[in-house]
Design a protein around this nucleic acid. Structure first.
Length: 288
DNA sequence: AAGTCCTTCAACCGCACCTGC
DNA sequence: AGCAGGTGCGGTTGAAGGACT
């Protein structure tokens, strides 16, 4: 005997969601949360839907900050890199692309990205053969040069960044292969500092050593456009109207495989420390 | 203009895993 | 330890719309 179905299929509605159903579900979750029980949620919300259907609709379409539309070249690379290393673990891949859902990425891979790769790899593949994760892995490491080659990075001098003036801007310029980070200390310093080919930037901002909060920022976490700006002002980092919080912290497993640059700043009354990590834990330069 | 084929993607299905009892 | 219910995940389906003939 198989297990009982999660809901009575005869009494629940199936198929596409209407705008009214969307509004009902969204309104209910925003007011009451999910309550940790998706099965009971549709009854409480007054929806004739299966709990699993509600969960899927919320996670894939209705929840805030969902990103729809074209995938960037950078996202392509993240997907290909992770697919090459772990296969079709869509939920894990999605966790590295904020705003994207596993369903989105799975659909994108199956309908577009896989074909793109087949086209690029076609000389080395038999007719209509799909690339294996191993093939993609080999391709990514040999041909695409991901991550970008490390550029020679000179550590900034104390004159480059005005640490006493917490109004500087870091501009992250995405190029599809990684990012460059430009720091503009503002008019008081009149200086700017450029880190070419950096692939990540993180900021630690603590009022005191035991209360410090760490904010990780990576190019694929929130940055959608070719050029966007992180601004530090009034003791906090913002990206557009969004104020940085702990959710910006990212643990990107693939990053551990590559050298990367990191800007790390500690703020007490003002920013006091800046260090660049050039290759995993190797500190390339620091200013105090 | 009409019919057919192709592509996309929201939604469903079934299974594995997790958790509480 | 074993069971049952809930959740999460990956594979698959099918409706809708666009492209092609």
């Amino acid at each position: 005997m198989g297990r009982a179905p999660c809901c009575d299929k005869a009494s629940v509605k199936r198929g596409p969601w209407s705008p009214e159903e969307d509004a009902t579900l969204k309104d209910y979750i925003q007011k009451h949360g999910t309550g940790g029980n998706w099965i009971a949620l549709p009854h409480k919300a007054g929806l004739r839907r299966c709990g699993k259907s509600c969960r899927l609709r919320w996670l894939n379409y209705l929840r805030p900050n969902i990103k729809h539309g074209d995938f960037s070249v950078f996202e392509d690379r993240v997907i290909c890199t992770l697919y090459a290393s772990m296969g079709s673990r869509w939920s894990i891949i999605a966790s590295q692309l904020p705003g994207r859902t596993d369903n989105d990425i799975k659909n994108y891979w199956n309908t577009k990205l896989k074909k793109k790769l087949v086209a690029v790899l076609s000389p080395s593949l038999a007719h209509h053969q799909l690339p294996s994760p191993q093939t993609i892995s080999s391709f990514m490491s040999s041909s695409l040069s991901y991550p970008p080659q490390q550029a020679a990075v000179q550590p900034p001098s104390a004159q480059d960044i005005d640490f006493a003036n917490p109004t500087g801007q870091f501009q992250v310029n995405k190029d599809g292969y990684g990012s460059s980070i430009t720091y503009d200390g503002g008019s008081s310093s009149g200086a700017s500092y450029n880190v070419s080919s950096a692939s990540s930037c993180s900021v630690a901002n603590g009022a005191s050593s035991d209360q410090s909060a760490s904010y990780g920022y990576y190019p694929y976490q929130g940055l959608q456009e070719e050029k966007e700006t992180l601004i530090f002002a009034d003791g906090r980092w913002t990206h557009g109207a969004v104020v940085a919080d702990k959710s910006w912290e990212v643990n990107f497993p693939a990053m551990a495989n590559y050298g990367f640059h990191e800007i790390n700043q500690l703020n007490s009354t003002g920013i006091s420390t800046c260090s660049f990590l050039l290759d995993e834990n190797k500190v390339g330069g620091s200013v105090f």
